[in-house]
Nucleic acid binder design. Sequence first.
RNA 1: GGAGAGGUGGCUGAGCGGUUGAAAGCGCCUGACUCGAAAUCAGGUAAGUGGGCAAUCCCUGCUUCGGGGGUUCGAAUCCCCCCCUCUCCGCCA
Length: 428
Amino acid sequence: MIDIKLAVSDPDRLKKALESRGLQTAIVDEMATLDQKRKKLVQESDELKRLRNEQSKQVGLLKSKGEDASELMAKTKQMGERIAAIDQELDQIKSELDSIALTVPNIPEEDVPYGKSDAENIHVKTVGQPRVFEFEPKGHWDLGDTLDVLDNTRAAKLSGARFNVFKGKLAALQRALISYMIDMHTKEHGFKEIFAPVLVLDKTCLGTGQLPKFAQDMYKIEGEDMYLISTNEITLVNMHQGEILKASDLPIRYTGFALCFRKEAGAAGRDTRGLIRVHQFEKVEMVTFCKPEESSKELQHLIDSAGAVLEGLGLPYRLSLMCTGDMSGFSAAKSYDLEVWMPSYNAYVEVSSCSNCTDFQARRAQIRFKEGQGEGTKFVHTLNGSGLAIGRTMAAIMENYQEKDGRIRVPDALRNYLGFEFIDGSNK
RNA sequence: GGAGAGGUGGCUGAGCGGUUGAAAGCGCCUGACUCGAAAUCAGGUAAGUGGGCAAUCCCUGCUUCGGGGGUUCGAAUCCCCCCCUCUCCGCCA
């Protein structure tokens, strides 16, 4: 959540920010008006409460002396009724204000390029060279089908479209990738491994910004206020929901594997084949909590950590800074995408998005820190990045490491995890 | 799923209708003592949100004792609903 005070103190900045993300700005003035109204009512209510408290004490005092207090009691009761009326109005304004504020995305950082579409993203660097094939490379769905390691037909039988069944050595590759990534992040990048539930309460999704605005992307459990997570950023960030952290414990870095579920509503007809766009996918996520002044540095650390996985696997990729209009993360103030080279697309495909959410999620989820005795509490900055999306990484390995005979060579880094050199139709 | 017990400040734990934002102990911070430390002594030590002020100093109002609602002039304390934890039983991978 953005700081509502901004709507009053610096409405132009907020309007500009919303505009840059392609949104309407009228709500800024609306918020300012409501907030002013709220403030006035709070003052009125507080003053009446002060009087009531005072008079109630008087009643107690009179009674303890055995004197008559009935007149004062009647007066105070009336006051209570007025307070109740004001507080009711106040509650209504607060919920109005909240329902607006919760749908406002984060404000882009100063150095995020202004732009309307992905065409205006800045390509920061490319790492590695796309392989030149001496034969026509196949798509990973074809490779998987031929080797009988990726079974789309059986998956459809079980769960419908956009699901997959991994078989044999491809299933093993998935396990290896999870271990490889998490081991790297814990041993080399300073993250602590976390395994958390994939089924969470609705208020948890509110904290990271998936709800209320993106309910249509998430699977809800019928009859309960629970959702299947769309990313494990939700669980990792909300681990500290409502907490006041010690400054000396920061930065806190978490990594973890989880299944993620997305409806992919509105993506009908796009990327229908293979592992690129599915309803259930596996992801290793990274999340960082830090002091505000450290978040730029920590964002770079996320990018480097995600990049290290791609480099370790020998996959060529591109790093891009998202422009204001293409920043997909509702909670993000600045985002970089890492895109892996996908021969079948003849293009780079996103495998990781690393974002600095500044204090946006922290404000929603009430995650704060305290510098020391007597110092006030401040909101932490939260950051998240995939490290990486497993399915898309598998697709990239299959395509980039395919041999002319259709087998897939295993990247050197995974040999120790797998114990075989090629993914083929065999089981061992 | 059934039965019982319980949820109070960083922690342990009192309070069970009025001056208690909350005893006591522990922890932590500051000061005194000390060459320094320990021990001892004195003081301080929750969060949120308003107002005053040039002020991140300070003064001050309101709210918060798992969450929500109710009773009352007044609720941590009484009543109702919900959530969570623990113990026992049942079920189960």
